[in-house]
Structure formats: structure tokens, C-alpha cells
Design a protein around this nucleic acid. Sequence first.
DNA 1: CGGATTTGACCAGCGC
DNA 2: GCGCTGGTCAAATCCG
Length: 545
Amino acid sequence: MGEVREENERLKSLLAQMLKDYQSLQKSVLYIVKQEEANKKSTDTIFSSTPRQESTDQEEPGLISLSLGRGSSTEPNKKDEKKNQVLNGGRLLSLGLDLGCRFDQLINSSTSTEPADDDEKKKITSSENSFHEEQLKEEEPIIETRPSSSKNIKNMRNGGDDHEDEQVMEQTHLKKARVSVRARCETQTMNDGCQWRKYGQKTAKGNPCPRAYYRCTVSPNCPVRKQVQRWVEDKAILITTYEGNHNHPLPISATAMASTTSAAASMLQCRSSTSQGLANSGVLDTSVSTSAANLHGLNFTTGNIYNARPHHQFYFPNNYSSISTSNSHPTITLDLTTAPINYNSSSHFNRLFSSSSTSNLNFSSPSSSTNYNSLNQLYNSYMQMNNVLAPPPPPPPHHHHHHQSSIATATTEVITSNPNFQSALAAAISSYITSRGVNDDHQQNMIGISSSGDNDSGLNNLNRWAPVPVTTHEYFPIMSAAASYSTSSAQNRSSTGCTASSFLNKLVSSNNNSQQQEAGNYNMSDVPVPSFPFSTSKSSASGSP
DNA sequence: CGGATTTGACCAGCGC
DNA sequence: GCGCTGGTCAAATCCG
Ligand SMILES: [Zn+2]
């Protein structure tokens, strides 16, 4: 108990620190943004619903903003407000956090600077929160749950039976944003925590690797699709492309990936739609300039993911990330395949988690502690922001597989670097802290343990690292312990070996029969759509029976 | 037997 | 208009 309190204090101060840093950073950003905005006002008009936008790639020098969630020109005001929110009522924010989406509604005040795109505007009519724009582009507004264009097609084919078709028609031309994740994975498909049903497979000519099409089956009418294909140049690498946002609560194990991709998508939107916004914060100026945040080991690329090099790339801060819309669909690629070049504390940290040896790590662990998970995030972002270097634990022995294991983590981390995200994060954290104070019932004592997992292969490793010096760090190793619950059971049919979903979320399935968890295991997060891992942090540790 | 996968057919878009 | 490709459907099949 006492310890927990202490930690609380510590975290609080960390948070304060973070906020401070963030604020200062933000100030400078805002300044820059304003300037740029003035300058660029004209260029962005193009907005992208038009598929081919290659040219724009070129012209917007570095506008990939990490802005989560708001496609609109993240205007300063909003940002400020957000910040305030963070300071005040963190909890609230934490919900909106899921990609910053819905949340904007609250904030969205007068600054209705929605991208002036007429096109968009018209769609927004129903609800005019800026955030929707992004959503719109990606697919229809979540509110609707209507399956996107695909459905249209279907209806048309079937003779369109109902009400739906007409209105949707118009927007069919819009191409949905896609987020593809490249990761080393031996299994057929990454286990991202969601339930998918395969509905098709195609083999492209001349390409030995077939592409499989999956749709989300968590909810019958969920529009989310994913395509899975191995990379030609390296068959060990699996390219998973996500499209759309879930219109239903997600199993916790899936939130990481979902929010990650969603965030990435919005990032993409952000860039393509409004070349102004926060984007210009100079974060990426064509090549490398870095913002304060440091991310590592991730690549963002966009364009033709499957076999070619992206025809145009922007490099993100520390992870190489780029976006392009050269494809018919605007696509952002998170490349998790390359080893991080710069290790710094946080990357090490992540590594730690993935350290457990075996090829297929399944991070889903039954017991696990959510709170620690969120703490982990916190830790990471804190590290990123302050660039604090804690003495990193020795790198895990097997550096081969760790990527896959921490995919979602890594991805999330990338996204995390976004200032907006960070503010949200801060909110989440604060909420966490507060809540924790109130009911710190579960698992404060988890510290040295790990007992929970039945499988301990990972544990051993963990213990090895366990001695992390600074107090704050004490917490984290534990998570890893929890995380390393590997179930090799997933071997059956379509093995879902590589788990992307990450320990961020507490994991779910204690028993997982090969590929799907039973309903019982689903922890539905309270937030409807793509939710952040920690937005629900407070929820009790999942537990499987 | 119910749900998931397989697989050929079908359709829309696009380039020529 | 034709052919190609990406994407989806749905009947058949598989599997627990
Ligand atoms: Zn879904």
C-alpha cells in the first residue's frame, strides 16, 4: 500500500514534468504551425479524396503529423483546450483518447476550422466534429456502422435490398485509408486480438504470395477488413493491411492494434487532408528532423507495400515512417521489421518485454495487470519526452523474435510520440493515477511476481532483468512477466502465432483455443470504437476464471 | 451441426 | 471495348 502511494506520488511528479515539457513543446509547435498555416493556406486545398495524389506527396514536405485523431488541421486552440482538459479532467480525456476521435466533439468549439474542403464538409453535416472527417475518409462515420463501399457493391449486386444503398452511393468514390503493418511473423496471420473471418484469397500474377482477405467478425456489421500477405522480398515478413475502424467495443487484446492502426490512419488523413496542421510542426521535414519525442525501431512507409518500395517516403522522427497516397488507397505502413537503430531506454524497455524466448510469443496472459500496462505506456512516453535514460536492462538474448512480440507495442509507441497523443496520454495517466488512489484494489502487489502465468519461460528471462535500478522502473519488469505468457497452443489450423496485441492491454484469453477466444474472455472495453489500451486501464485485471 | 475456410465466379475500376 | 487486377460473394467443404 505504502509503496503504491509512493509510486503514485512519483508518477504524479512525472506527469507534471511531462506536462510541463509538453506545454513548452507545444508552444513552440503552435508558433510554427501558425506560421506555416499562414503560408500554406493555399496548398492544402487539394485534400485528398482524390485517389491519386502523388503530386501532393511531393509538395507537402513534411507534413506527416502524428496527430492522432484529428484529421482536421489540428488547430492550436483545440490543442490548447485539450491540454487543459488534460490538466483538469484527465479521466474524461482518457476516453476520448481512443484516437482522439469522439472526444473532439466536446472540445470542438468555435474553431471550426474544418478543412474547408467542400466535399468533406457536406458529409460532415450530420455531425460536425472535426474528427469525423478523418473517419469519413476512412470509411463512413462510425456512428452509422454501415459497412462501407463494399457493402454498396454487394447491394448493387444483389439488387440492393434496402434503404441503405442510395445514400452511400455518393461516397463510394472515396478511398479508405489503410494502415499496413509489416512484421516478421511465421504464422499465417498475426494475432492482433481481433476475430477475423477469411473471406477471400487472391494470388496475384507473378507473385508467389497469395493475399488473404479477412473481415472482422467481432461484430456482424463491422466494416473493418484486413489483408494479409507475405512480402515478396522476404517471406518471413508478413504484411497486414487494415482498413476501417471497428464499430464495436473491442476485446482488450485487440485494442492496441486497433488504436494503433486507427491512429496511424488518422495520421495519414491528417497529412493528406490538411497539409497544414500540426503537421508542420516540422516534425518531418522531408527527411529526418526530429521532434522531441523519440521512437525507435519503427518504420513508416507508404505506397506500394507489397512488393515495391514506396515511391515516396517521409521519414518520421526516429522510426522511419512515411506516407504516401500513390496507391489508390492512401496507405500508411508501419514497418516493424527493422531493428531499431537507436536504442534508448524506452526501446530497451520494450525489448525487455518481448524477451521471452520462444518463437511465438503470445502476450495474452490471463492474469496480468492492466494498471501496469498503462504504466508501461506512461513510462515509455515519459522516457520519450524527457529523453531520460534509465540504465537499460541488458538486451534480451534472442533478438530474433522480439519484434513480432512487441509489435503492437512498438506501433503504439510510434504513435505515442505524437504530442497530441501525449497529451491524451497524460490525461489517461492522470486519470489512472487518480483512480488508482481511489481503488487500488487489484494488483498493487504484483511487483515481483509473475506467478500468474502458468508458463514461465518468459519469466526466467524476466527475472534476469528484473533488477532495474530506479524505483519507477520496478514496476515495469513485472508487466513483462505477465506478458510473457506464451501459449503455444495456437498451433492448430490457422495458427495465430504472432501476437501483436501486446501486453499493453491486458490480455485476455487464458485459454485460447487456437484461434479464437471464447466470448467469455472478451473484455469489452467501455469505449465503443478504437480505444486506447489504457483508456480502460482502470478496469480490473481481466481475469480469466 | 454450426461456424470457419476454400475457391471459383463475379463485379467494378483502370489502363490500353 | 477488352483485358487485367483488386476485392468480394457464396456454394461447397472442412473441422471441432
Ligand atoms: Zn470489428
